[in-house]
């Protein structure tokens, strides 16, 4: 133990400790930079190669058979919008009501089971969800369809929307809830009119992130929406989508298709990025201060 006599020495920090501290700090910084390398490389390639393949035709034309130059993937863009729209119609309302349930009635045992299921469901591989919907809808309807694809994406959106809605509703101060109840407003009305409205921007963020994720999903569409070379005409027919199209083109041996895959990736990444940045914009209040 140090004696107080040499208190002048006590001002100096042993070099070993200082060096260890510095080394670990540097390692953490290096790790962070290392983590950003793939992101930057990926964005760089998607932008450079994607811009090279991007054309008006790509956005407006149907795909052409192999060997014929030109053509586009307009049907896949429309298809992705249709699929995401379908998924949103089912997934968002159901997710939000589940979130309300968890936030407002969340202390019961049922609620705990539901919350746990939501967390576990969000970790189920998307390909498994694809298999499930295949058995549930494709087999029974005897055909691949846009509806089946939409349902698969909805199942994937559901837990994300529910849990983020719950978290945001919990942030609404109890005093606000009580203020509404004290005015003689029934609970359900207070929940919908006051609590939900207060949390709306945050919920919108959660929803947008879930939509962005669904838009990029490929695996569950392989057995449900399948793919198509034509314009979507009916919801009970197979439908094209950007992710599946990128997959098909990327693993093909054709140069022209590779070019189009990069261009489609640029469109998809732009869509996902816009949704993410917009979602960020909605929640200014969630600062990163600890």
């Amino acid at each position: 133990m140090n004696s107080r006599k040499n208190s002048v020495d006590r001002i100096a920090l042993p070099g070993r400790r200082k060096i260890t501290d510095l080394v670990v700090r540097t390692l953490c910084l290096v790790a962070t930079l290392l983590a950003l390398v793939p992101l930057l490389s990926l964005l760089q390639f998607v932008i450079v190669r994607g811009a090279g393949g991007l054309s008006w035709d790509l956005l407006t034309q149907l795909p052409r058979p192999v060997g014929e130059p030109g053509g586009g993937m307009a049907n896949a863009i429309v298809g992705t919008l249709v699929l995401v729209g379908l998924a949103s119609c089912v997934g968002i309302p159901l997710g939000i009501t589940t979130g309300i349930y968890l936030a407002e009635y969340g202390h019961t045992r049922t609620a705990r089971v539901v919350r746990f299921s939501a967390d576990v469901l969000s970790g189920v591989p998307s390909i498994i969800v694809g298999m499930f919907v295949y058995g549930l809808m494709v087999v029974t309807m005897k055909r691949f369809s846009a509806v089946a694809g939409g349902v698969a994406l909805a199942i994937l959106m559901l837990p994300t929307v529910a849990r983020s809605t719950e978290e945001l509703l919990k942030l609404v101060p109890t005093s606000l809830r009580e203020a509404a109840l004290a005015l003689g407003v029934p609970r359900w009305r207070a929940t919908l009119r006051v609590v939900l409205r207060t949390a709306a921007p945050g919920i919108a963020t959660g929803v947008m992130l879930a939509v962005a994720r669904a838009a990029g999903e490929t695996a569950p569409l392989l057995f449900t929406a399948l793919n198509s070379r034509f314009w979507p005409t009916s919801l009970d027919r197979p439908i094209a989508s950007l992710p599946v199209q990128i997959f098909t083109y990327a693993i093909s041996p054709y140069e022209e298709w590779h070019r189009q895959a990069w261009a489609a990736a640029l469109v998809l990444v732009a869509l996902v990025l816009i949704l993410n940045v917009a979602a960020r914009f909605f929640v200014r209040h969630r600062t990163d201060a600890r």
Partner: peptide, 19 residues
């Protein structure tokens, strides 16, 4: 602290907190 500024350059706060 004992007449020496603990905020002067080259002083490690870690050592100050020891004392």
């Amino acid at each position: 602290l004992d007449g020496r500024d603990i905020y002067r350059a080259g002083i490690d706060p870690v050592a100050i907190r020891r004392r």
